[in-house]
């Protein structure tokens, strides 16, 4: 391996290392969010079964579906919103 390719490889390794360091906390947190609701979390392991229930709970508790309806333009009736949450689009 000549110096040029060694330098290039070393550079790649360093950049990947820093990218992993930057990304790891986010990946660990997203993986933690994939655990089923109520699971006792410890460590950084993969969940036994991937679950989106925590995202569903956050979506519901944040009231995002209602906000999406209330933001729709006047005069444009959203049938989907109306059918899923009748209270949000009654006006």
């Amino acid at each position: 391996m000549n110096t040029g390719s060694f330098e290039r490889t070393a550079t790649h390794v360093m950049l990947v290392l820093f990218a992993v360091l930057a990304l790891a906390p986010l990946v660990i947190v997203v993986l933690a969010a994939m655990h089923p609701s109520g699971t006792l979390l410890s460590g950084a392991g993969l969940p036994d079964s991937f679950s989106l229930s925590t995202f569903r709970t956050a979506w519901d508790e944040g009231g995002f579906s209602q906000r999406r309806c209330s933001r729709s333009r006047p005069g444009m009736r959203s049938g989907r919103c109306a059918s899923r949450s009748p209270t949000c689009c009654s006006t």
Partner: peptide, 11 residues
């Protein structure tokens, strides 16, 4: 996120 990372039983 980091509070969970630094938790005594955290990652």
């Amino acid at each position: 996120a980091w509070k969970w990372l630094y938790d005594p039983s955290g990652p």
